[in-house]
């Protein structure tokens, strides 16, 4: 049964059609990678699923809940689906551990000590048990992104949306973040990620979707899409990547 389902989703910014009749299904325990040129709508798609942006047409389901319905409690939906951002968006006025605690306490209403224990466990898991009392500005980009992942995991989400989480990082810091995503994939976390890391997509993705013209242009197993795509735009995109040494 598909956990995330998009049916004929359409979204416009003014006169620009960002998403057009987009269909997508993500099953439980699936890791789906969205690839495609900048501005193709990958990020918008993720933001729509999380209700950070509204849509004009179509329906979006998470589990059995229609999240595109105007009467749904979006806050409850967001608790089920975590999101990690390109620019981390850590709260700068809180330490690492406070960042991981704040939503547990203020949204889920957990006791301070309980929240702290969970936060410490998650930060240890992403290898930051020594940095828990540092402010985000004192952390490297890779460390900040790992805190952001821990912050999202603290809400016990049933699925994760990862929006180009390594593209703002220096190349040498990409690995430490991807390592965590890799572990989550092995544990069976349902994930939908927009990414430019093709080798990583090849490694963890159960399915790769090439997004173009506001819809899923071509999709299939990672090996097939990334090595031998059928459609011309996918081929052109991969060729450009090869030329710029990113594949």
């Amino acid at each position: 049964m598909s956990f995330v389902k998009l049916e004929k989703v359409g979204k416009t910014y003014g006169a620009i059609n960002v998403l057009k009749d987009l269909d997508l299904r993500v099953d439980k325990h699936e890791v789906v990678c969205l690839i495609g040129p900048s501005g193709c709508g990958k990020s918008t798609m993720l933001r729509c699923i999380n209700g950070l942006e509204g849509i004009q047409h179509g329906k979006i389901f998470i589990g059995d809940l229609e999240v595109s319905s105007p009467i749904v409690d979006m806050n409850a939906v967001r608790r089920r689906v975590g999101m990690v951002f390109q620019h981390f968006n850590l709260f700068p006025h809180m330490t690492a551990i406070e960042n991981v605690m704040v939503a547990q306490r203020r949204v889920l209403g957990k006791e301070k000590q309980t929240a702290r224990d969970i936060a410490f466990r998650l930060l240890s898991r992403v290898g930051l048990e020594k940095e828990i009392d540092k402010y985000p500005e004192a952390l490297s980009g890779g460390q900040q992104q790992r805190v952001a992942i821990a912050r999202t995991l603290a809400m016990s989400p049933q699925a994760l949306l990862l929006d180009e989480i390594t593209s703002a990082l220096d190349p040498e810091l990409v690995g430490e973040v991807l390592e965590i995503v890799r572990e989550l994939a092995h544990e069976g976390m349902t994930m939908l990620l927009a990414t430019h890391e093709m080798s990583f997509a090849r490694e963890v993705a159960t399915r790769v979707c090439f997004v173009a013209e506001g819809r899923i242009y071509e999709e299939g197993p990672a090996e097939k899409i990334l090595s031998d795509p059928d459609l011309p735009k996918t081929q052109a995109f991969l060729r450009r990547l090869v030329e710029s040494h990113r594949l």
Partner: peptide, 29 residues
């Protein structure tokens, strides 16, 4: 940055919760 509100909302904060716990503490500082 708008990402702050987006991050707060994505964690399940409502508008006023996000204001109270995330946005206003930074603004006041």
């Amino acid at each position: 940055p708008s990402g702050q509100l987006a991050a707060a909302r994505s964690l399940g904060f409502g508008y006023f919760g996000a204001m109270r716990h995330i946005i206003l503490p930074q603004a006041i500082r």
